[in-house]
Design a protein around this nucleic acid. Sequence first.
DNA 1: CTGAAAGCGCTTACAG
DNA 2: CTGAAAGCGCTTACAG
Lengths: 324, 324
Amino acid sequence: MPVTISDVARQAQVSKTTVSRVLNAGPEVDPATAARVREVISQLGYVPRSGAVQLARGASRTIAMFTPSVTWPWMGEVLQGVADTVEEAGYGLMLFTSGGGPASVAHFTAQVSARAFDGLAVIVPERSLPAVAEMRRRGMPVVLIDDHGHRRPQLPSVATTNFEGGVQAATHLATAGRGRPLVVTGPGRFGCVRQRLRGFASVLEPVLVAEGEFTEQAGVDAVTRALAAGIEVDSIFAHNDQIAAGALRALRAGGRTVPGDVAVVGFDDLPMARHTDPALTTVRQPMRAMGRAAASLLLAGLGGAALVDEPLVVPTELVVRESA
Amino acid sequence: MPVTISDVARQAQVSKTTVSRVLNAGPEVDPATAARVREVISQLGYVPRSGAVQLARGASRTIAMFTPSVTWPWMGEVLQGVADTVEEAGYGLMLFTSGGGPASVAHFTAQVSARAFDGLAVIVPERSLPAVAEMRRRGMPVVLIDDHGHRRPQLPSVATTNFEGGVQAATHLATAGRGRPLVVTGPGRFGCVRQRLRGFASVLEPVLVAEGEFTEQAGVDAVTRALAAGIEVDSIFAHNDQIAAGALRALRAGGRTVPGDVAVVGFDDLPMARHTDPALTTVRQPMRAMGRAAASLLLAGLGGAALVDEPLVVPTELVVRESA
DNA sequence: CTGAAAGCGCTTACAG
DNA sequence: CTGAAAGCGCTTACAG
């Protein structure tokens, strides 16, 4: 029942070859013939079966995104950036998650082997990095979306300006006359943490540093401890918005006003940053733009462009709200 | 270079038919033969090309999710639920967005016609509902994820208990001795709004009602207005967490304590609900479970089960935190 | 400019 | 239990 290329050919009184040619804008077809074929195509509502095209061409015009989880606060933005770009190119997008453990990874790996897609955008997979590198080695075009400031010389990637983000935060604070900052960082093993700190310190010194997890509780703890120790600071640079939210809470509990007594700057610009009280001034990570960039890079690679291992860097941007 | 079924057949000294049979657990194959074939398969690392299988079988073992946007606060949860379920079934998942307007919808529609996937999970598409109904009519299995309490008798769907959610909020408040509630609703055209309100009022009466958008600003406005009018309430039921966040802010600005003077209950349980101050007590919409249910329904439908139009209902759940 | 034919890599009656 | 052959719906040299 579904219409095939043969139906179109018959109806238009040409060969399947010719139909295929007008479909794919192939070598010149007689304009009149082409018009007739196009007429029949739209009349019959013909759309080539993607499975057939895929088999004949050896390519699926589909790319995949592979990520540990899709529930992370900023993941929607990345995904939307990838989805928009992929769609504009007329490609399909497959989504895979590694959160289910080895079974998930195996499922994904099988789809790679099955050639279900032509290229792959990956959010730093920690554990499964070797697996991804292996896929690349076997010829699967890959680009990493690097949210942790890791350097992966062996893979093309898109990253953001963590050092510069630290500079932006510090400059804003310094301009406002703040000179006694506390920096509440994430775990030091992350490249982004070291870079943000170095950037910040390059503008504002000396800085007090408290290292912790990337959680709200860590922010509460660090600030509560500082207050208890009698350490008086006039500003806080939190390495992500959750830490900043915790800092806000601890400051309020400690009777400090924000930004009156203490100015607070976060990092990421999660959706929740607008909902804290006061609304958070923060260094925005351009997650959607990174998603777009990754997809563009990948698409360009599929189009024949060389995929270089030098990371493509999308800049951070300071978003000024009420907390600083 | 990539290994095909022919390679396996040759190496195992059987026909492609036999290889296919062990691959698909077809009619009994001699155990010894099967073992030998399996041996060769794993030795060669053979995985059937998905495009070829798709063409030969007329099915892609892939389902699609179609949604206006992937950046909505709870969308990650839905998507994760769908992704997990689909993965467990060994299916692939394609993702499409309608946010790009007509071009997006056209892109998606083309993929439907191209039979790029076997079934479809859809987040209420508002505008494009007719298009989706049309797809269903043409034989594409569809299940709706109904986040707005609409009734779509013509399509299978999964929904949640909006009425019961209202009951849960009211019961919690009533139990705590609150008797003068203000309900800040979303737009009355949404079924979920009417149901939540009716559920609430069935327990706690009379209720003051303020209707507005589903935004934080709407919450600020409604509560600010009420306070200015000298209306004294001891509790607020907000129809989503953003409204609740606005209410919290307005209450603080008005010098009221929460939950001391006024208890506040939200709806949704967005990630931000833990980060408000005080943390929000709210009626949790089981978005991940709804995603799982939708995918399960769809998969069952592909397996031959009848897809009934009666909505599958996943219950809400009250999450008690600090605000009430 | 156009077409016949082979081929992409599987699955599936049909025979045996 | 096993295989030869046709078929799924396209694309792509190769001829003309």
